[in-house]
Structure formats: structure tokens, C-alpha cells
């Protein structure tokens, strides 16, 4: 399975983004940021690739502030790949 992970500069940005995305009917899940990305206790958003355009739109409208975007492949072996920046 392939997912998208979005990271944030702060916990508050993550919480705001979750609310804004849900308001726009984007299916997202709050997850702890994987240790491979940061060893600190952070919150990220897990979603699927098809939602990226909607997320970009909210970013461009200044409604949410994101830090990085990763592709997360979860099969027998988990793999993370940074897409942006």
C-alpha cells in the first residue's frame, strides 16, 4: 500500500491542517511522525496520493501550512521517500 505523509513545523499546524482538510472532505489520519523522519515526538498526517491536489490548493490559499511531503510504502518492508521540498 502507498500512502502520503505530511509533516508540519508545529503540533498546532498539524491540528489546524487536520481540521481544515476534514472540512474539505479530505480523508486524513493523524499519526505520530515516523522515527525515520524525526526522532522527536511529532504529529503528521497520513493520507493518499489522490488527495495531494486538494491539499496543495489549501496550502496555496494559505489555509494550511505544511513542512514536508513523503511517500510511504507499506508492504513487507516499509519505505519512505521524500517528495517535497
Amino acid at each position: 500500500m502507498e500512502y502520503i505523509i505530511i509533516t508540519f513545523e508545529s503540533t498546532n499546524f498539524a491540528i489546524q491542517a487536520e481540521a481544515a482538510l476534514k472540512n474539505s472532505d479530505v480523508n486524513v489520519q493523524i499519526i505520530p511522525t515516523p522515527r525515520e523522519i524525526t526522532l522527536s515526538c511529532g504529529i503528521s498526517i497520513l493520507t493518499s496520493e489522490e488527495n495531494l491536489s486538494k491539499i496543495d490548493k489549501l496550502v496555496n490559499e494559505g489555509k494550511i501550512r505544511i513542512k514536508e511531503v513523503y511517500r510511504y510504502i507499506k508492504d513487507d518492508v516499509k519505505k519512505l521517500e521524500r517528495l517535497r521540498p
Binding site: I15, I31, P32
Partner: peptide, 14 residues
Amino acid sequence: DVLGRTLMKSYVYS
């Protein structure tokens, strides 16, 4: 509570 709900989601996912 807002943080608490967020942490709970994070916990259950973990």
C-alpha cells in the same frame, strides 16, 4: 482537550 484528542489518534494509530 484538542491536543488530547490528537494524541489519542496518534496513540491508537501507533
